[in-house]
Amino acid sequence: MDVDLIFKIAAIGIIVAVLNQLLIRSGREDQAMMTTLAGLIVVLSMLVTQISELFVTIKDLFQL
């Protein structure tokens, strides 16, 4: 586990936010929503593996 996960997610978040504003200004609100959703799903898929790793670690250490 290392710190670059946070930077990766922050970078994706910033890119999606900027893209969102760009698309909204150019009048394509629906595409803006699509990109936000896409970014959210990418980040969630990255985090899901980390969360499962978290619970596996707790289970191993406490012999649950």
């Binding site: 290392d2 997610i9 978040g13 969102n20 504003q21 985090l47």
Partner: peptide, 23 residues
């Protein structure tokens, strides 16, 4: 920083931070 544009991302970053510090 990301709270204004999309609150969902700010929560996800918090979640990532929690996981990192935990590990």
């Amino acid at each position: 920083l990301l709270k204004k544009e999309s609150a969902a991302f700010s929560f996800l970053i918090l979640l990532a931070g929690v996981l990192t510090v935990f590990f």
